[in-house]
Structures are given as C-alpha cells and as structure tokens.
Design a protein around this nucleic acid. Structure first.
Ligand code: FES
Ligand code: FES
Lengths: 150, 150
DNA sequence: ATAATTAAAGATATTTTTATCCTTAATTGT
DNA sequence: ACAATTAAGGATAAAAATATCTTTAATTAT
C-alpha cells in the first residue's frame, strides 16, 4: 500500500515507542535490526521523523544517546507518521489517478471508494502510536538468530 | 494508491469499454488523449492488457484496426485489471510491509485492516468493467480544448 | 585533551518506475 | 504490388525510489 520508506517509518516508530515505554533509547543499528530494514536507509527515514516541524521521534547524539519518543508524541495518531512521510495522497487521492477527487468531479470509483477511504483513514487516525506499540504483535519479517547486516 | 501504470490501465480499460459498447474501435492516440495519459506509455500498458493469458482488451492491426473489449471480457470485474498489472499486493499485503499477512502472524494493523481490506477488494470485485463503463463519470483530468501531444 | 559513540548531513550508487523512440509485422485499400 | 495505417516489440532515456557510504558534529567518559 505505502512505499517502503513509509513502511519502515511506521515500523520504526512503533519499535522506538516500545523501547521508550521502558525508558530505553535505541540506536540505528538496534532499530534497523529490530524492524528488519536496511540500516542506512532507516537512518535517513529517522531524520525525516525527528527533524523538522514533525517531531515524532526525538534523538540525542553521543554515547548513551539514540532515538526515543516523548510521552506526548506517543499519544499522537499513527496517521501523523504517514503525514510526515508525505504519503496521505495514497489514501486521499483518486483511485484512477485523476486530480480533484471530490463530490463535484467524481470518477466512477468515487462513490464506492468514499466509505472505504473513511475506514482506511480511521484505522490510522483512531489509534495512537502508544496504543499500537502496546500490542505485542511482530514488527519484523522472521526471527533471525544472528543476522549479519554490518 | 496504485502505480501510474495501473491507474492508466484502469482508465484505458474503462475508456475502451465505453467505445466498444457502441462498437467503435479506438487507436492508441485516441485512448491516450481520452484518458489524459502519455501515448507511448499507454501503448505499453495496452500490450500488458491485450497480450498474454490476460485478454482484457483485444486489438487488431492495420487501418480500421485498434483496441476493443469483447462482450465477455467486459463482464469481468475491474479487479482483473489490477491482477493483470500485478498490483493486487497493494491491497492484499501487510500495511507495515511484513511478509505473511495472516491470522497466524499478524502485525499491529492486521485486525483493523482486515475489514477495510474486504471493503477495498469488494469495490473492485463487485463491479464489472461494463457497469463502470456505463457510468458517465470522467476519465480525464480536465477538458483540454486542443491538446498538443504529438 | 583525547578517544569512543552516537546521530546529522551530504554524496554517491543501484534499482525500479515512468516515459519515449524506433523498427517490425499485420492489415487494409488502391 | 504498393502505400497507408495500425499495433507489437525492442531499445533507450529520464526520473524517482531505494540503498549505501563518507564526513561532520554532538555527547560522554576517561
Ligand atoms: S475522483 Fe476518483 S476516487 Fe475520487
Ligand atoms: S500482517 Fe500487517 S496488515 Fe497483515
């Protein structure tokens, strides 16, 4: 559904939130391994999530540093991650790729998609990062005993 | 939601179906202009939809040739176009990008997405190409009086 | 002060997607 | 047979997404 960037962003956010709930900061290597994503690419995505006006994740440099999520940020909906990655269009835009998806200029899919869109939006808007992090569902493809991504 | 390829594929299929309903064959130029898509790229997509075991659209070379959709093909669900473009994964796969999206190995989004996925699949599976073509909703971005895509 | 550890930032590389062009084959009308 | 029109197929180009590497800055501990 989303790009790999956004998939990694969602997984990373949930992963960090879980560690932050036990007041543990995590570094890039831990995050990348924890979500089964390429390390350097994950680093780039974390810049997007931490930097900016976004402020979904926070970070501190140096030893004992790393990434974490503030209490208040973890209460925000996971939808904010999709916004930060600038991919709300994947849900919001016309299914046929036409501009101006609205009541006035609908395509053939507008009506049937209307309710689906609502449902899709609500699954990301109705749950906070914290709530999703609290579930102990997997965030990683498969158990890798000793992965070697240096 | 889908790739540009699939968006064009959906629009082209509906466009051709409309013309076929009045027994009119259309050529690449007419299709590309009719759906507001790049001509050569549209041609490549039509190969995917006509060629193969897919057979959603049919074509005939030479003067008075062009693309059309057979009666029986137009009764198939629009979902077949998404299958032909090999993008069912966009609906079917894990929202977080994890492999093996199923009851046994769910991610945090599995349950909330389950019903949305059903709705999403049904809007493409429950309507035939013909039915969608019969609606006279737009298939093109905006009215272009005299577009110049040579 | 120095060394070690961490993220930030910038540069580069690879792959995929999107888009275009050119040649060939099929069909039609003259 | 020949010219015109159309799609098919192959080659190439351009842009975007994905991925990696290198250097710099910040922080900590010694
Ligand atoms: S105009 Fe196509 S889904 Fe809204
Ligand atoms: S496992 Fe994630 S949505 Fe199915």
């Amino acid at each position: 559904m989303f790009s790999k960037s956004t998939e990694y962003a969602l997984r990373a956010t949930i992963f960090i939130a879980r560690q932050s709930s036990i007041h543990k900061k995590v570094n890039i290597r831990e995050i990348a391994e924890g979500i089964g994503a390429p390390k350097y690419f994950t680093a780039k995505i974390l810049q997007q999530l931490s930097n900016k006006n976004v402020q979904i994740v926070s970070s501190i440099s140096g030893p004992a540093g790393g990434f974490f999520i503030k209490e208040e940020a973890s209460k925000r909906p996971i939808y904010n991650v999709i916004e930060a990655m600038q991919e709300t269009h994947i849900i919001e835009d016309c299914v046929l790729g036409l501009p101006n998806c609205n009541e006035k200029t609908p395509c053939s899919m507008y009506k049937p998609y209307k309710d689906v869109k609502k449902g899709l939006l609500s699954i990301f808007k109705d749950k906070s990062i914290q709530e999703i992090a609290n579930s102990k569902d997997r965030l990683i493809p498969i158990k890798i005993p000793n992965s070697k991504k240096p």
